[in-house]
Amino acid sequence: MNSTKVYSLLLLFLFTFSFCSKKDVDSDMLDENLTEETYFPPLNSSEWETKSIAALNWNENQLQPLLDFLEEKNTKSFMILYNGKIVVEEYFNNHTATASWYWASAGKTLTATVSGIAQDENLLNINDKVSDYLGTGWTSTSLEKENQITCKNLLSMTSGLDDSLGDDVSPENLKYVADAENRWAYHNVYVKMQDVVANASKTTFTNYFNTKLKDKIGMSGLWTNVNDLSVYWSNTRSMARFGLLISADGKWEDTQIVSESFLNEATNTSQTINKAYGYLWWLNGKESYHLPATQAQFNGKLIPNAPNDLFAALGKNDQKIYVVPSKKLVIIRMGASAENSNFALSNFDDDLWAKINAVID
């Protein structure tokens, strides 16, 4: 065999060995990440373990374009958790790690979760009518129509009450449009579930929330009332803690905070009209969806660029908690509206996921 052939064979061997070795390393990294146990940050501590983009074999050169995009779109904070560990944590536009920002309607999912906890404790049943807990006359509808409305209808936005009358939830502003279960409409009447929980637990909603959820997972923050809206404010890591709890099927370390069975209901289609809505959670990957302030049905996925199994807490002006079970991801975005003021979903969701995919794929 001449020297040219020997040299060629040697190069081929070295290339094959190098390729296989890298493939084996990448495979080992993937296997390790898939089998790693979920990490939970300690309570009442700033300690939080991290994981590098390199360790996840993500595309590090695509991170800066993502961060530039976020800053341009009025973002205040952004986090990516993988299996509980922080991979990305960035603050923009003079916001800081200790500063609070509003969750807006992303905080609806806090109410849903606390409702599930109360049901787990046999304090209430979401299939009961709301008047069992609030008494009759909590709406201005007839007694017959009012008694059709269950707690589940509040959680799934199918109360049948008029959503065009503003956010006031006093009885005179809660008027009949359709029988419960027959119409999906994004309505602030969901907040009556906080009264249900308070009455069922014989304490205030805030006390119950703090004791059963906030304190148990180390969240900061507080509820405020703005123009008859109950709004939660916290730092970004507190929002991430809540997202982590949900992604871990309701467990925090070895403690079941809210039952997996309730969360399974909450993060799957809750009624027959808006396939992309659970119990105050938005769901991706469905064949159609409805949006606030319209009765129109839109065909296709809620966020086309996002994974099908994503579910999300979405708040006014682009407050986001994305949970992606298949990828072990929790992603947080807080800030001002990326473009135009919106109730929940916006074009920003799909554009953001295009940038996220460039990093994680």
Rank of each mutant, 00 (worst) to 15 (best):
M1E: 02
N2I: 06
S3K: 14
T4D: 07
L12A: 15
T16C: 10
S18K: 08
C20T: 09
C20P: 01
K22F: 02
K23L: 13
K23N: 12
D26K: 12
N33H: 09
T35Y: 00
F40T: 11
P42I: 04
L43C: 04
L43G: 03
L43I: 13
N44K: 14
N44R: 12
S45G: 09
S52F: 09
N61Y: 12
P65I: 02
L66M: 10
L66S: 06
D68A: 10
K85C: 08
I86T: 15
I86C: 01
Y91A: 11
N93I: 11
N94E: 15
H95W: 15
A97M: 09
T98K: 15
W101I: 03
Y102P: 12
S105E: 00
G107V: 07
L110P: 03
T111H: 05
A112V: 10
G116R: 11
A118N: 04
N122L: 14
D128H: 15
D128F: 09
S131I: 12
Y133S: 04
G135M: 05
S140Y: 06
S140H: 04
S142Q: 00
E144L: 14
E146Q: 13
Q148A: 08
T150G: 06
C151L: 14
K152Y: 08
N153A: 10
L154P: 10
M157D: 01
M157E: 07
M157I: 11
S159V: 10
L161G: 12
D163C: 01
D167C: 01
D168H: 09
Y176M: 06
A180D: 05
A185V: 00
Y186N: 01
A198Q: 04
N199P: 03
A200M: 11
K202N: 13
T203K: 11
T206L: 07
L213R: 07
L213W: 02
L213A: 06
K214Q: 14
D215P: 04
K216H: 11
K216F: 05
W223E: 04
T224E: 13
T224Y: 08
V226H: 06
L229N: 12
L229Y: 02
N235W: 06
M239D: 01
A240I: 12
G243I: 10
I246L: 13
A276D: 01
G278R: 06
Y279E: 03
W282T: 05
P292W: 00
A306C: 10
A306M: 04
N308R: 05
N308K: 13
L314V: 08
K316A: 10
N317R: 13
N317T: 12
D318F: 08
Q319M: 07
K327S: 07
L329K: 04
L329N: 02
I331N: 01
I331F: 03
G335Q: 04
G335L: 02
S337V: 07
N340V: 15
S346M: 08
F348D: 01
D351Y: 12
I356M: 05
D361N: 15
